[in-house]
Design a protein around this nucleic acid. Structure first.
Length: 880
DNA sequence: GCAGGGACTTGCGTAAACTGTA
DNA sequence: TACAGTTTACGCAAGTCCCTGC
């Protein structure tokens, strides 16, 4: 949904019938919340609980507004919670400072205060708080983002300027950079002009049945009609046979629902691919209408999308099976995921080939059996890694290797082992491989591809889909991250009788590729998406699965549902924040802990934090924070310091609301280091509570929501006129903000410093050339002969026009290098990919590219284009 | 209500592939 | 064309969260 900021944006309770009026969100007051209740959430997303007909708990927080959509489900269960929402009925949500409306005060002059606090006092203007309701807390931070973008853009404008504009805080943990931001800043106000545009577009009809939260007051007959100008024509033209996360919420709409045409219902049990074929004619009609509309709008960018579509079509045509870039109808957990499934199982790594190179023990060569040698080689190749500095790694390796050696082996301790001969042999093999001619490399690649071809594809309901990881993991030493207690243990070879295959009942059982062996089991479970699995040899309680690739329809559908659920949170977030704010001072300690934990998850995009076993690395998330992970700094700052997922350090100091600060002090009282901060809480309790606030809501939805809305907001706020390169700078910067919020870090490349030095040198050289050219131009204009070049050579006399051209070329080159250099420095510790792959709704990017004529290939690589094929048809006006 | 099994998503490091430049 | 530098794809570890059975 597009929104543009007015000078005083605020949040309205509902939607104005006036299509042309800007969408205004206004934080609801007590009395209005009941009115909202009549406007059920209709975002095209819904939790599985609804699908399964679960009763919606009475505590459900109502969304601020509904979406236009098509209800395909019963609405009875929705009505139940519409009536009973305590939030809607609450009179004084803020316990410590009674106030009729739900308010967290945003300082009126946040830039001056430089505070990240969200105040609760009444004497702050409602406007500023209202405008923030639909933004992630992180996005409210006072960011130096604009400066950074300007810095990068300035390079384009002023090539000769130095690179002072790059962030100088790259050595600070990503999360810590947040502290420079101001929660509650109005820097990311929606723009009113933006608000208007999309609304008018969206109201023409939901592009994917999910976009819109718009025009809830429309007659129901309108909302259930399948719009002809739906941007996702194929998708839209196909009846979704089952309720999805997306659909159920639509059903919340308290309006009479126009039934779907019966003919479509009959297709419920027909595989999607077949339904697609069946419906292709009708969809063609609508899509052609839609396409013609988009072509006009999209112009140059449109051609890029068309090219992409052609690529997919080519792929599809090459196959004897249909290849869909559209999505399967949703199916919730425990429901049918496929009707027919055919695949060829998995491929095993080749058996170990002994090299016969002898390692040394106390300086003497030792003969090893092939099994012993294989494991010794695994250890030898890790010589240059950090694992070799870790005692636990060596200890675990020694324990497992010793079992293979036997007690009476000549090798009696690891310290006297010298693996250098094996290491050297591996290095030389590596080198040999490197030295192979390109023909040899190509031949090897083709040979491998030929071997693997049959495993690469599965046929799901008649559609050829790529398999993600069809190669069985080879044996190796376990590379647990951080201080994993099992690092270095031998990950044994997986054999066919470790593997359970899942396949369609009528499909041929994949032939076991190892003669004389057989699969552990064959299943025909169509409620799951995995094709095969085996028990993790390191932790047999865990499994390793073979799934379809990210580009598959099944994964795409799941992805889309994820983003729709996050979009739905946008409708609920205001009331959810009000609800937890109310509980900050609750006497019920569990409630209070839930409130504070939810606040942290919302504000800092923390992960939920499941309990962990002792045989895993000691990392934490929100619910598992230990008291030493949070340090209170008077008057109201909290300093976070812990190891999160993958043992990535999270360091951040933020100002919080006083009740949160006090609550943390209370939770820490009388506890010892190592004790849980939230001792009354775990993720299941937290998620159960969240589900009472919004169907399907869990802690991780906040991350998706925060990430996507931040991208949407920043793109729309910061994108200015300019060339594609400038726009990409804006995009990358928005992407960077998201990565910082999510604490997506990467280690600085070893060659970073050298690369920067080289770039600096090159820029200096070009600056010298430019200076010389300018002097030449000056002389040429005066009709004087050119001076000799710096190396003493006589220059060819050029006319002023030619020199001007050269100057322009050199300037452009410098600008590009400067821009690349700034970007490189700016992003050296930030991993942009993770958020792009997992957290940013691709429709935001696609729509932005269309609006601003940026070729989508500049933002999404080949894999992402395939993964997000479902998002490519999005309307240019799409807003998260 | 809880524990644990099970199925999936998220995440970083690195090998492999690709691209630009001399 | 070779090589260095950069980007992408892959591998697999490590999360989240649902479901089931006691």
């Amino acid at each position: 949904m597009a929104v543009e900021a007015s000078d005083k944006p605020h949040v309205s309770d509902g939607f104005d019938d006036d299509d042309d009026a800007p969408i205004i969100f206004k934080r609801s007051t007590t009395s209005k919340r009941n009115v909202q209740g009549s406007n059920a959430p209709t975002s095209n997303a819904q939790g599985s609980s609804l699908q399964k007909g679960k009763i919606i708990p009475s505590g459900m927080v109502l969304p601020k507004k509904s979406s236009e959509g098509i209800s395909r489900a019963s609405t009875s269960h929705v009505k139940a919670y519409l009536v009973n929402s305590p939030i809607a009925n609450s009179k004084s949500p803020i316990g410590y400072k009674p106030k009729p409306s739900l308010e967290r005060k945003i300082p009126s002059d946040v830039t001056k205060e430089n505070s990240s606090i969200m105040h609760l006092t009444k004497d702050n203007c409602e406007d500023s708080e209202d405008e923030l309701d639909n933004k992630p807390l992180s996005a409210r931070l006072k960011v130096n983002s604009n400066n950074a973008i300007k810095a990068n853009l300035a390079v384009v404008k002023k090539s000769s300027e130095d690179s002072d504009n790059v962030d100088d805080n790259d050595d600070i943990p990503l999360s810590a950079r947040l502290k420079n931001r101001n929660f509650g800043t109005s820097s990311s106000k929606y723009d009113n002009s933006d608000q208007k545009k999309p609304i008018s577009k969206v109201q023409k009809g939901p592009q994917d049945g999910s976009n819109a939260s718009i025009n809830q007051e429309r007659p129901s007959t309108l909302s259930v009609k399948r719009p002809l100008d739906n941007t996702d024509s194929l998708y839209s033209s196909i009846k979704k046979p089952k309720l999805s996360v997306l659909d159920a919420s639509i059903s919340n709409k308290k309006v009479p629902i126009k039934p779907e045409p019966k003919v479509e219902d009959d297709d419920d049990d027909v595989p999607f691919s077949q339904r697609m074929k069946k419906l292709s004619e009708s969809s063609d009609k609508s899509s052609s209408l839609k396409k013609s509309k988009n072509v006009i709008k999209v112009n140059k960018a449109g051609s890029s999308f068309k090219k992409q579509a052609t690529k997919f079509n080519k792929f599809s045509n090459n196959s004897e099976y249909s290849k869909s870039t559209k999505l399967l109808p949703s199916s919730g957990d425990g429901q049918k995921k496929w009707t027919t499934l055919v695949h060829n199982g998995v491929i095993f790594p080749p058996p170990y080939q002994p090299h016969g190179v002898k390692m040394l023990y106390k300086g003497k060569p030792v003969v090893l059996t092939p099994e012993q040698e294989e494991v010794a080689t695994m250890f030898a190749v890790m010589r240059d890694t950090d694992y070799m500095q870790k005692d636990k790694f060596k200890e675990n390796f020694w324990t497992d290797w010793r079992k293979l050696l036997g007690k009476n082996h000549v090798i009696q301790n690891l310290d006297d082992c010298d693996f250098t001969p094996i290491y050297d042999w591996c290095q030389s093999e590596k080198e040999k491989k490197k030295q192979m001619s390109s023909e040899e490399k190509k031949a090897l690649k083709e040979e491998r591809a030929k071997l693997e071809e049959k495993y690469m594809w599965a046929i799901v309901d008649g559609v050829k889909e790529k398999v993600g990881n069809f190669r069985v993991e080879p044996p190796g030493l376990f590379r647990g991250r951080g201080e994993h207690p099992k690092m270095g243990k031998l990950k044994r070879r997986i054999r066919p009788n470790d593997i359970i295959i899942n396949i369609g009942k009528d499909a041929p059982i994949p032939e076991c590729p190892i003669p004389g062996e057989s699969w552990k089991d064959i299943r025909h479970d169509n409620t799951v998406t995995w094709l095969a699995f085996w028990n993790d040899p390191i932790n047999p309680k865990l499994f390793k699965y073979v799934f379809l690739a990210a580009s598959s329809s099944l994964k795409g559908q799941s992805d889309k549902e994820k983003y729709e659920k996050a979009r739905m949170l946008k409708e609920y977030i205001g009331n959810i924040r009000a609800a937890y704010t109310k509980d900050f001072m609750c006497r019920d300690i569990t409630k209070q802990q839930i409130a504070v934990a939810t606040y942290l998850i919302d504000k800092l995009a923390l992960r939920a934090g499941n309990e962990k076993d002792d045989d895993e690395a000691d990392t934490v998330g929100c619910c598992t924070l230990k008291i030493e992970n949070v340090t209170a700094e008077a008057p109201n700052k909290l300093q976070f310091n812990f190891l999160g997922k993958d043992s990535i350090k999270y360091e951040n100091t933020v100002e919080v609301e006083l009740p949160v600060y006090n609550a943390i002090l209370k939770f820490q009282k009388d506890k010892q280091p190592g004790d849980d901060l939230f001792d009354m809480l775990d993720t299941s309790k937290l998620n159960a509570h969240l589900k009472e606030l919004m169907p399907g809501l869990t802690a991780k939805v906040f991350r998706t929501f925060n990430a996507s809305i931040t991208l949407d907001d920043k793109l729309n706020k910061d994108t200015k006129d300019g060339d594609v390169a400038e726009k990409i700078v804006v995009y990358n910067h928005a992407n960077k903000q998201v990565a910082i919020i999510c604490n997506h870090q990467r280690s600085v490349s070893k060659s970073h410093t050298a690369q920067m030095s080289r770039l600096t040198e090159k820029i200096d050289e070009l600056q010298a050339v430019l200076k010389e050219l300018k002097a030449d131009l000056d002389r040429a204009r005066k009709g004087k002969p050119l001076l000799k070049s710096s190396d003493g050579k006589t220059k060819k006399n050029l006319n002023p026009e030619a020199l001007e051209k050269k100057i322009a070329q050199t300037t452009t080159k410098i600008e590009k290098m400067q821009r690349d250099m700034n970007a490189k420095e700016d992003l050296k510790t930030v991993a942009l990919g993770t958020s792009k792959i997992n957290y940013l709704d691709p429709r935001i990017t696609v729509a932005w590219c269309k609006r601003h004529e940026v070729p989508i290939e500049k933002i999404f690589n080949k894999s992402l284009l395939a993964k997000f094929a479902w998002a490519m048809d999005v309307d240019p006006d799409f807003r998260f």
